[in-house]
Design a protein around this nucleic acid. Structure first.
Length: 757
DNA sequence: GAGGAGACCATTTTT
DNA sequence: TGGTCTCCTC
């Protein structure tokens, strides 16, 4: 074995090494949290290429997020350099798109097809509800979309799931399914579920296509196998050739996508399906302290539907897990802000070392508000996404139409934005015309605008003008870069002008967002050079997921859902909202399987933590901004053995009376332990780091006037610390006294002391 | 057909 | 609480 071979096997423990060097054939790797899963996968790929002489193009690796795919590709390239060219490392959906682009016509599409996201899907469905005369009070659009998706996840005929629709609607439901499928096809589009199912159909119905891929991919590797659904499992079967070189990696304890059709059975039954499979267990965790691991184990071992196993670690015991019961969500947010501030000032952590996890996106708002006050940088992963904003979707709608003139949903979205006096009635007629003449919707606009069909003269001219706009832009797009095209179409459409003319403040933000979109397209062009087509950009955007947007270089506190946290790790983690009904979520109480998934979610959160873990709950919480309601602690709270945990007091003085009422409110479980000063409870796991450059700080002096971006003007009353940890206490005119870390607070020097004294 | 006022509903998680 | 939808008026 050469130098590269040795490099590939460097720093692997025996189990990891066994997995990397395993012989051909099916291979199942149970990879516990923090056990070096990514390392094993990337080294295995590198090993196959460098040692086993497998050509990179013979490798197909499938991950769940684009981010994971990028990381994997990057690591293999680090090991092999340009010898890694030609591998397929994609998400399931990404790989399917790639396959479908090559064989689009075989599933009734053209290569420029659109990808319909949830919103597009619902827009179309809503329209079809009208056509099928289905009352949305009886059967919600979202519910229909959910059933469609589930059917596709199961690779089942949607009609066979008609039993899930309200009994009175079964016939209409079947009709709806068929109509929906037809319309998506006519729009030259796929929804997310279609991407998998239609690829499956393509391979099944076209053996020569299937054999082409089987012949090509000599090695299949699947990451996060516990989160594959039935359709994905079947897809793997189709792609897997006679060699049966399939490596799957996963952890049944981290399966958190049941609601999306994931079948934990896929991994648990792997050995039944492949009796000759080699099974390797990676049981050493290199990430977390022993205490955190014990806590995680205490939680997860309560689940019944799992393979019993424990993780061990060479790491030290570490700090106690700190639990905090807040008065309400404000208090909880204050605790988060304070803890974060303390971790940075006293424990020497970078903001990027800290993460806040929650069950639902809605919980982020309060945390954001309080973090804003500390001046610490933070990012919210997910929630209302950039690409979900109206103006961004509008812009993308225009661009989609240039690539795919059949895209009826995109047309409906942009034809009257900005207002062109083309109302729903006219749009309906255009759609009907396109149906009747079997032409694309842009052609329909063109023809209707030219006088075909029955349209009032006024509307006719307006539609003709719109068709000309799209035609012009389509031609333009063929000769220009995507970013230039985007600017062109938005200007020509009058979109920019309409926003500029508007007096509303939010329209100014919209302009900024559009500028940001153009920037994103330019970045995409820089990264992909010759391959940077508009079509590829739209595809990337459609398949983007929340975790893809996490950027560890940002050095900001990360706020994200527990789902988005999977696959990441942080030195310090604050998990909030450990309340019954929130984690576990109230919607998960219907079945034990769902409850167990909530527990796994909790497990995933805990195991993201390297060194310091904080758990919080609020005694009162308001939902929908209504009245605060008393809560109960999560059952998972009580799963933690007392010796691992330290309960700490409120961030505010004089809450002893409240603590009593609180302990009665949370009647079950151990009694709250004595409140101790926080300074003593945190042992010095992290080194203080005071030796930093003082250059980038504002030159403040006592009693000078300053301005804070959030709190406005104030007077400096106290200065402490130096370097990166320099802090100032400021008495703000409107918000009272606050202590801020200068590095992050963005304090602006306004006036020296004398001028206002 | 546009725009505004008010009703109404929502929160699970997302490729 | 805030974002979306519906209805009403112009």
């Amino acid at each position: 074995m050469g130098d590269v071979g040795e490099l590939i096997l460097q720093n692997l423990n025996p189990a990891q090494r066994e997995a990397v060097t395993a012989p051909d054939g099916p291979l199942l790797v149970f990879a516990g949290a923090g056990s070096g899963k990514t390392r094993v996968l990337t080294r295995r790929i590198a090993y196959l290429i460098a040692v086993r002489d497998v050509h990179p193009s013979e490798i197909l690796a499938v991950t769940f997020t684009n981010k994971a795919a990028d990381v994997m590709r990057g690591r293999v390239e680090e090991l092999l350099g340009r010898h890694a060219m030609g591998m397929w490392i994609h998400t399931f959906h990404g790989a399917c798109v790639r396959i479908l682009r090559s064989h689009a016509e075989r599933v009734g599409r053209k290569p420029g097809f659109s990808i319909y996201d949830e919103a597009d899907q619902q827009t179309l469905l809503k329209e079809l509800f009208g056509v099928c005369e289905i009352d949305t009070d009886v059967f919600a659009v979202r519910q229909a979309a959910y059933l469609f998706d589930q059917a596709k996840n199961e690779a089942a005929d949607p009609a066979t799931l008609a039993s899930h629709a309200p009994p009175s609607l079964r016939e209409k439901y079947v009709h709806l399914c068929q109509l929906y499928a037809t319309r998506v096809r006519e729009a030259n589009a796929f929804d997310f579920g279609d991407l998998i199912v239609e690829t499956l159909r393509l391979l099944r119905e076209n053996p020569e296509v299937r054999d082409g891929y089987r012949g090509r991919f000599r090695h299949l590797l699947v990451d996060e196998f516990q989160d594959t659904n039935r359709a994905q499992d079947l897809l793997i079967d189709e792609l897997l050739g006679a060699h049966r070189n399939l490596m799957v990696v996963g952890d049944d304890d981290q399966s958190i996508y049941r609601w999306r059709g994931a079948r934990i059975q896929n991994i648990l039954d792997f050995e039944k399906k492949f009796p000759e499979a080699k099974v390797i267990v990676l049981g050493t965790n290199y990430r977390s302290t022993s205490r955190i691991l014990q806590a995680a184990d205490a939680v997860i071992k309560q689940n019944r539907g799992r393979k019993p196993k424990t993780l061990d670690t060479p790491n030290p015991e570490g700090a106690a897990i700190q639990r905090f019961v807040a008065d309400d969500e404000y208090d909880e947010a204050r605790f988060v802000a304070r803890t974060a501030q303390e971790l940075v000032t006293r424990r020497g952590l970078r903001p990027g070392d800290i993460a806040v996890f929650y069950r639902t996106n809605a919980q982020s708002r309060m945390i954001e508000e309080k973090l804003l006050e500390t001046g610490l940088p933070y990012v919210v992963i997910g929630g209302t996404r950039f690409y979900d904003r109206k103006e961004v979707k509008d812009a993308l709608g225009y661009l989609r139409l240039l690539i795919n003139p059949n895209d009826g949903v995109a047309l409906g979205r942009v034809i009257n934005v900005p207002a062109r006096n083309i109302g729903p009635r006219t749009v309906e007629r255009i759609a009907a015309f396109a149906q009747e003449k079997a032409c694309d919707v842009v052609a329909a606009c063109r023809r209707v605008g030219a006088g075909e069909g029955e349209l009032p003269t006024g509307a006719r001219g307006r539609v003709a003008a719109f068709a000309q706009l799209i035609d012009r832009a389509t031609t333009f797009a063929q000769e220009h870069k995507p970013s230039v095209t985007a600017g062109y179409v938005l200007r020509e459409a009058g979109y920019i002008a309409a926003l500029e003319a508007s007096k509303k403040v939010e329209d100014k933000t919209r302009l900024e967002n559009l500028a940001e979109l153009l920037k994103a397209i330019e970045d995409f062009e820089d990264e992909n050079e010759d391959e940077a087509t508009l079509s590829l950009f739209l595809e990337r955007v459609s398949l983007l997921s929340d975790p893809d947007l996490y950027d560890e270089r940002a050095n900001a506190i990360s706020l994200m859902t527990l789902h988005a946290a999977k696959g990441l790790e942080f030195p310090a983690v604050i998990m909030i909202g450990l309340e019954d009904g929130l984690l576990p979520h109230s919607r998960s109480k219907e079945s034990p399987a769902e409850f167990e998934e909530e527990r796994r979610l909790c497990y995933v959160g805990i195991t993201r933590t390297k060194e310091r873990l904080f758990l919080t709950a609020a005694a009162m919480r308001r939902s929908f901004g209504g009245v605060p309601m008393p809560t109960r602690l999560s059952p998972f709270w009580f799963d933690l053995p007392p010796q691992l945990v330290e309960d700490i007091g409120s961030t505010r003085p004089n809450v002893s009376a409240f603590t009593t009422t609180r302990s009665t409110a949370f009647s079950s479980g151990p009694t709250t332990r004595l409140i101790r000063p926080r300074e003593e409870t945190i042992d010095p796991l992290f080194d203080y780091d005071e030796s930093q450059d003082p250059a980038d700080q504002p030159k403040l002096e006592l009693l000078c006037r300053v301005r804070h971006p959030h709190f406005g003007p104030g007077v400096v009353t106290h200065l402490a610390g130096s370097g990166q940890l320099a802090r100032a206490t400021v008495r703000f005119d409107k918000f009272g006294e606050k202590t801020l870390i200068l590095k992050y607070a963005n304090l602006q020097y306004v006036a020296p002391p004398s001028e206002h004294l």
